[in-house]
Write a protein that binds this DNA or RNA. Structure first.
Lengths: 240, 240
DNA sequence: GAGTGGTCTAGACCACGGT
DNA sequence: CCGTGGTCTAGACCACTCC
């Protein structure tokens, strides 16, 4: 049981859809019927249905009803990108061995050139960190991160070797609430060949990620370069 | 002026945020204040603020207020993927010349192997279409599409040469309401070298896209292979 | 015309943040 | 403690779909 009514209703309906309860009509019961069944107001039902819409599970058709979207292969591969964890591995093996090697850790001042590349202001003191990420011993990602010193105070190489995010959340007591990412494919450069296990591929994926705390302050800018074939991203879009 | 109250309020606030009206506090007026200003109920204000949250423009902090997220470079590059248009070009030049060449158009029956790859049922009659997309004369994308004949009736090569979506919307009078995509990087195969302008790159991006009508029916499955360096995607994530 | 979801109102109580 | 946003209620009217 969830703490929120609308969340409980959402989970109930989602489960029933997956179990095929509505397979004969492919339409949910009307909002008024759901009101009676869950003994709640229409707004609360609508809120639960809104989440189903956001998930890409149903489509609310005005005047007709809440239509269940046909099942697809893509649903089985569903996962979200970002979430400050980076990309999701396609090899969804639970027993992968993860390793991180810190290649660089130093404090610098943002100059004009860097300020144009990232969203920090010239003159800002930042920590610059380079890390290689290994899965099962294979170098799969190379991260270049900048953290604002004014927000992420007293960072040390030891902290970076462990979990920066645990430090931010537990020691600094900062709330991390949002991130924005941009993704593209780039021709591999020398550093990529040096640090990543590219096999014969000569391209990499690039993900730029900026992260915000609950004061709305941008405190991290990270560029992740990652190898082909191993990572994917799923999106969902509505309306034309 | 928008037709909906909440949409009008959303647009007003969004504009004011972009103009820097709240730069001193970086916090929006309280919901009650906005109720008075727009002469509306709190639910309507909350709905407008919800859209700002979805956009990644603000973060609603319980007990404190609606915090404006600091501006970033990524916001300037903001656009959405999918929308049944495919990927967004990085060269945001308005004067690009677009061309499409139909490489293949035929009717086939989904066999066991194809049914496992795409989300259609074995035995279904489909149109298989291969198209190369050119921007300024450069081959940038190669699409392989399957359309269900039972839904997209009487497709011809002439229609395919023009706009399939115009045909679907205007002639067939179908409403297209949603799509799901999966994105990854793949090592280039022979067909990629044959059809795409890869330069010295040996990888491509792959986007698989499935599209639904307003009956919840999946009617299209498309695989887009596209060249590196030219396309990007922006995402926004909340909560950790 | 009957029934559906979409918008909107005017209230209520709660959980959390800051003082 | 007060003020904030988060949840929820019980109504109302509208636009659309389908018969």
């Amino acid at each position: 049981m969830s703490s929120n009514k609308f969340e409980f209703i959402y989970k109930s309906l989602r489960l029933e859809i997956e179990e095929g309860v509505y397979n004969d009509t492919m339409i949910l019961p009307t909002e008024m019927e759901l009101c009676k069944r869950f003994d709640t107001s229409r707004n609360t039902i609508r809120r639960a249905i809104q989440v189903l819409n956001d998930d890409g599970v149903v489509y609310s058709a005005k005047g007709r009803g809440v239509v269940i979207l046909e099942n697809t292969n893509i649903d089985k591969m569903y996962f979200k990108i970002g979430n400050f964890q980076g990309l999701k591995s396609l090899s969804s093996n639970k027993y992968v061995k993860k390793d991180t090697k810190v290649q660089l850790f130093k404090e610098i001042t943002v100059d004009e050139i860097l300020a144009q590349k990232i969203s920090f202001i010239e003159g800002e003191r930042v920590y610059k960190i380079e890390r290689t990420r290994f899965l099962n011993g294979k170098a799969m990602m190379f991260d270049t991160s900048y953290f604002k010193k004014s927000i992420i105070k007293n960072l040390t190489e030891d902290i970076v070797k462990g979990s920066i995010y645990d430090y931010i959340k537990q020691k600094l007591n900062l709330k991390i609430v949002a991130s924005k990412s941009i993704l593209k494919i780039d021709t591999a450069c020398e550093k990529d060949y040096e640090y990543l296990h590219l096999d014969s591929n000569n391209c990499v994926g690039e993900m730029i990620n900026v992260v915000f705390d609950d004061r709305g302050r941008l405190f991290e800018h990270t560029v992740v370069r990652y190898i082909p074939n191993e990572f994917a991203l799923v999106t969902f879009d509505k309306q034309v």
